[in-house]
Design a protein around this nucleic acid. Structure first.
Length: 558
DNA sequence: ACTTCCGAGCTT
DNA sequence: CCTAAAGCTCGGAAGT
């Protein structure tokens, strides 16, 4: 059974049930919706169809209602439009409805409009963008049926169905993570800042430690004042000291012999901490010992998530000590080890690489395979890693080219898989992930550059750049397929008090009652197994280790 | 005064 | 350290 819920411009909701009677009034207010949704979910366990989980689910979460399954029309529309080569078209409900009905696109969805995918907000004077007399739920029903038809017409409908379900479930998980929040000890964070920077100072002032370092740096440059937070000023200061530097980046400065370098490096590190994750950040983003960012599912073309506010996917390792389980609770921290090379092995069907994946440390066994008869040391493992990363990213610098050639010799199936993707990109063609995410077409500027008779060098470089992008896309987007399915299956399996609180590309955090931690670890192992079977089939010979640690603090994992 | 750009650094 | 991709955020400077 399916229940379609869509918000109307007046803040109310229209609802429709497909395949049964859910006992729902066709039109209802938010409080009423929450009440009915709780009952319907408990009794009927339907698939909920939302215009966009991001907009529609928080109201239910706010009322304490969680749903098991859903279909996110906006996310699926984005995936289908990309598959059909129409990346530029809007995904929001009224635009999708107009396409399904063969109507003129709604005004707000015109190309070049800044709010291409912005749904009209509550009480938006523009209305829903739907034709007069068309209820939002009615439009959603039309779009839902149309999406299902479009999926069935594709070459691998089962994969797209899986992707649609996994992406939609990921959106549920993202909204729930924001609602639950990541456990974050403000007192630990404050103590760390005080230890490193000195006592707290008002916003806009320089903490004591930074002021001391600034003074020492200025002395080292002969007392002349400089703007430490402006890279150009630092480059000029070194220039006056007779040292030419291309930039003020930390790794450049590290190679310079000058008394200002040591305090400058320390200043840069601490100033970064202060400006990006200092007291201002703490006040703005952490409340009640919870960090609540907004995760943007499908925010990256490859299918990776992005985040809005608080730089949620850029938490410095140094601050992971602040992420602490509540008393009586634990964190289960787990990341998929060397996910991308394993995904490549499965994608390409490379049996020899699959054998290498049997090892928990893929790069060690890869080194054994690449340098037979040589004992594996850190250097050889490092070379094997460079070879693999170069295959997936298109690197050519240093010894990457020769290592890549060796890898190609030993693993021709995997190597040719990514090379075909790169060549397709160089020709301007689209490539797809395992489940059907599609790379965007190159820009008009790219076509002009590579198609014209302009500058051959430039054209060649542009083609190669895009080939690197599509080479990486097939692997990264297929890894995103795998993790989306993992989130969906794990979310389904977790015992009720345990919940996902963080997800970062190939890493998950679950906050759980301590006595359930072992069960969570078992759920995770089962979810990994299900995921690999769902994405790559039951005969997939590639192993996907995902070791989990039960800890009190995120910093204590690994 | 406002917006836009740039360099930098953080994560995967 | 490097090899590559992308996204978020800051502070300062340049442009309007």
């Amino acid at each position: 059974m399916e229940v379609i819920v869509a918000r109307e411009p007046d803040g109310g909701y229209t609802v429709r049930a497909l395949g049964g009677d859910a006992g729902l009034p066709p039109r209802l207010g938010e409080a009423e919706l929450v009440r009915h949704a709780a009952r319907v979910e408990a009794e009927l366990r339907p698939r909920w169809v939302f215009a966009a989980v991001e907009h529609d689910y928080p109201a239910l979460l706010g009322g304490g209602v969680r749903v098991r399954r859903c279909h996110d029309l906006s996310l699926v529309e984005g995936i289908l439009l990309a598959y059909e080569g129409r990346h530029d078209q809007a995904r929001w409900l009224a635009a999708a409805y107009a396409r399904a009905r063969g109507l003129e696109p709604p005004a707000e969805a015109g190309p070049g409009h800044p709010d291409l995918d912005e749904q009209p907000t509550l009480f938006d004077p523009r209305g829903s963008g739907l034709p007069a007399g068309v209820a939002a739920a009615e439009a959603a029903e039309v779009v839902y049926a149309e999406q299902r038809r479009r999926i069935e017409r594709l070459p691998h409908p089962a994969r797209l169905r899986l992707l649609a379900a996994a992406e939609s479930a990921s959106a549920l998980a993202a909204a729930e993570m924001s609602a639950d929040g990541l456990p974050w000890r403000a007192d630990v964070h404050d103590a760390l800042l005080t230890e490193l920077l000195g006592p707290r100072v008002p916003t806009g002032q320089r903490p004591r430690r930074l002021a001391e370092l600034a003074e020492r740096i200025q002395q080292a440059f002969g007392g002349r004042p400089l703007t430490l937070d402006h890279p150009g000023s630092i480059v000029r200061a070194f220039g006056r000291a007779g040292i030419t530097v291309p930039s003020a980046r930390a790794h450049v400065l590290r190679g310079i012999d000058h008394p200002a370098v040591a305090p400058l490096l320390e200043y840069k590190e601490l100033a970064r901490l202060h400006s990006a994750h200092g007291w201002t950040w703490l006040d703005q983003w952490v409340h009640g010992n919870r960090f609540r960012p907004v995760f943007v599912v499908g925010g990256v073309v490859s299918g990776r998530w992005a985040s809005r506010g608080g730089a949620a996917l850029q938490i410095p390792r140094m601050l992971r000590a602040c992420v602490t389980a509540d008393p009586g609770w634990k964190l289960v921290v787990s990341d998929a080890a060397q996910l991308e090379p394993r995904v490549l092995a499965a994608l390409a069907g490379d049996r020899r690489l699959a054998e290498v994946s049997a090892s928990a440390d893929l790069y060690t066994s890869l080194a054994e395979a690449m340098f037979p008869g040589v004992p594996v040391d850190a250097a050889n493992r490092g070379r094997a890693k460079i070879a693999m990363l170069s295959a997936m990213y298109g690197g050519t610098a240093g010894e990457a080219a020769s290592l890549l050639a060796l890898l190609r010799q030993r693993f021709p199936t995997a190597a040719s898989y990514v090379e075909r993707a790169a060549l397709a990109g160089e020709r301007g063609e689209m490539v797809r992930s395992r489940l059907g995410r599609t790379s965007p077409p190159p820009s008009a500027a790219w076509r002009a550059l590579t198609g014209g008779t302009a500058n051959e060098d430039q054209a060649r470089r542009a083609a190669r750049d895009w080939g690197r992008f599509t080479r990486n896309f097939v692997v990264q987007a297929s890894a995103a397929d795998w993790t989306a399915v993992l989130l969906a299956t794990l979310r389904q399996r977790l015992p009720a008090p345990a919940h996902l609180v963080f997800f970062q590309h190939d890493e998950v955090l679950v906050h759980t009652l301590a006595e359930l931690a072992d069960e969570v670890v078992a759920c995770l192992a089962a979810a990994v197994h299900d995921t690999t079977t769902l994405v790559f089939g039951s005969a997939c010979p590639v192993r996907f280790p995902m070791p989990a640690a039960i800890v009190d603090r995120y910093a204590d994992a690994k």
